[in-house]
Design a protein around this nucleic acid. Sequence first.
DNA 1: GCCCTTATGAATGTCAGACAATTAAAGGTC
DNA 2: GACCTTTAATTGTCTGACATTCATAAGGGC
Lengths: 255, 255
Amino acid sequence: MKTAHPATPRQDLSAQIAEAIRDAIVEGRMITGERLPSEAELSEQFGVSRSTVREALKRLAAQSLIRTQRGAFGGAFVNRLSFEAAYSQHITTSTLLLSMNAVSFETACEARYTLERACAPLAAHRRTTGSLATMRTEIARQSQPDLSDEAFCASDVTLHRALVDAAQNPVLSYQLAGAVEAMQPLMNMITFTARSRGEIVALHTALTDALEHQDAQAADTALHRLEAYTLTLGRDVMASRARNATKRTPPSSSG
Amino acid sequence: MKTAHPATPRQDLSAQIAEAIRDAIVEGRMITGERLPSEAELSEQFGVSRSTVREALKRLAAQSLIRTQRGAFGGAFVNRLSFEAAYSQHITTSTLLLSMNAVSFETACEARYTLERACAPLAAHRRTTGSLATMRTEIARQSQPDLSDEAFCASDVTLHRALVDAAQNPVLSYQLAGAVEAMQPLMNMITFTARSRGEIVALHTALTDALEHQDAQAADTALHRLEAYTLTLGRDVMASRARNATKRTPPSSSG
DNA sequence: GCCCTTATGAATGTCAGACAATTAAAGGTC
DNA sequence: GACCTTTAATTGTCTGACATTCATAAGGGC
């Protein structure tokens, strides 16, 4: 009996329905702002219960594909995927991807700085006084000796985001957001000494100066140095962590 | 009773619960492979019905944060976010972002080629015979005159993905996937003439040759030319589309 | 003792029906 | 016309039930 349609019974009904609606949205058969049929209508159309339809809709809502509104003339509407929502999704996914897949500090660092250097020429050309001001503000913050390591990292992210945004290309900003923000948890594992902070602040200043003078080459150099320096800091931390882990390993075989 | 915490009633219960569990995962309080409490237990813990818990779990499943398994010793497990799953999510989001936000062809094109040029030095240094072979294969495919425009674009994407993958940095590949793949729908709107195809194939060949010779500078140049050429093709199409749209506009005021 | 079959129980998947909460629009009052 | 009330449609939540799946335990045949 089941041989009649064994093609895709391995998926939940709610997943199948969500996929059907998602396809309709992605392929443009439903446009932004359009209202989906009510849950009752959908359950009739798909021949399932309302609960199943609701689970499907929640799946779509989790991807910001639809938004729901209660009350008369409420319902589920195809969402205009804002850059903001896309940013936060991308950042969450990138962060998890790095934390769950044992991506080395080197790999993540290389990806981040490679992408940032790509932005540098555009940023040098198009930077505004606003983006420069943001970067200077963060540099000032990073110079405060009583700043916690976490706050230092957060400020670092803000500065680099300002660099990326200075390129004035929202698509680029979106793509870079993941690479820059996802590094923060890795950076948070590093204890920044006064000396290392000074070095970083100096490089941040060189970078900002380069943008101010619209000197793409100097910005590229500053980013190269920053990458190399970050890498040495990260390597030191990872190495000492590895040593500690080895120490804690039981000397005899387990059990 | 409920007056005790009216702070955040603007969100659904299922959204709140999903957020609570998501935070636990992102912050590492739950690790990959760990089993969540059963739906019955969760509904008791959060003081809500099982349906509400299920909607929350579906939201998390939609983001590939958890996977569920039926049967004895089944349940919801914290998912290891694979690069593969992250790729497809990122691509879907990027594609929608572009189609829904009236991003100009210029902006998308600039972002894509800026990012690809960032990969070029690494790709030139690390390219394998495998990545070169993939690129040559796609070039051969693109040279077939009877290839449809859609297939030509798909082949273009494959070739550029090979370029990105040649950098041998999975994080970079992941971040770039969105930029490269999301361009395809925009590219699909272009009708490629025999002449334009020839030009693109020539530039693809130059790019591949550059990688083979590990000549980062030549690869950069080829990508710059490719960007410029793609841009002119895109501009032509957009301009003619704009003209047609104007023609179709009713000559008098509507109504 | 060993293997195959069968129960068992725990868990998710689905359904049906009910009620609460919300909200825009229609209708009524002044 | 401005303001208030009613109304109907829709989502949000709860309850209880049954179906389905699946690892393990129990049982029977040899």
